[in-house]
Amino acid sequence: MTLLSIDDLVVEHRTPGRPTVRAVAGVGLTVAKGEVVGLVGESGCGKSTLARAVCGLHPAAGGSITFDGRAVTPLGLRRRTLTGIQMVFQDPYSSLNPRRRAGDQIADGLRAGGGPGTPADLLERVGLPRDFAARHPHELSGGQRQRVAIARALAASPRLLIGDEPISSLDASAQSQVATLMRDLAVDSGAGLLFISHDLSVVRLIADRIAVMYLGKMVEVGATETVWNDPQHPYTQALLSAIPHPDALGNLPAELPGDVPDPADPPSGCRFHARCPHAMDVCGVREPDFGPAACWLHAPALP
């Protein structure tokens, strides 16, 4: 059953005196109850903007976001009554109030969700000692802070948990731990999880489905096993071959040539064609607006 459905979403960043940047340029995605969707892409591809738009932290310029049958309205000055969507942010150093104890911040979540238990119970669920409730954020490490942030989000009993690169600022040792923790906690409580990361190898471990974004567009969506073993889109293939494999053969990860183009002035046609090893004539002219792999190589029926 669909919990979150994003349809043709457009999100724009407007800065006076600069061209408008379409950070998200027509994206569709769904998350079902109890499903873990991994959203991957290079930095600057619009995945964080997408996450913020889903929470209502960024107004949509077009398209729709529907959560549980209701449209998500942008967060204004009024008190938020929709607490079913909670977010875990990227930087655990700025996502906790430095002046308040961990327990008090988790209690905010409990108040919002009306869930059972105490802050200490939640700390236990995220694998921290119960007495951490009395600590201030500066007494915690980055990984511990991120766990507190997860506990706070979970305390609100969300039906959709969003992780906006929640592991990218953590130590390598803490990354997969925190990722699997988020997955387990979300799935156990029956919530959906939208997990954003640029690290395909971690996303693969926790996601049921993987969505790949490039320059504000969704390029490929599919079941994790399919995307991992048989990627269709050349960009997904490039992302996968950029992952180092310890195969002792001395194979270096393949690098993708070129840089991400300026999102304020995206290339015509397929946004990836300038860097694509398989680019054809049609790629620079017409945009492949179909799925699950938005690539002319996999067009349903060539025009």
Binding site: C55, L57, L75, L77, R78, R79, R80, T81, T83, I85, Q86, M87, F89, Q90, D91, S94, S95, L96, N97, P98, Q105, D108, G109, R111, A112, A149, R152, A153, A156
Partner: peptide, 15 residues
């Protein structure tokens, strides 16, 4: 713009 302020708003804090 700090994320803890946004988190608070998402948890239903009034202004």
């Amino acid at each position: 713009g700090q994320e803890y302020v946004l988190s608070g708003r998402l948890l239903g804090f009034s202004t």
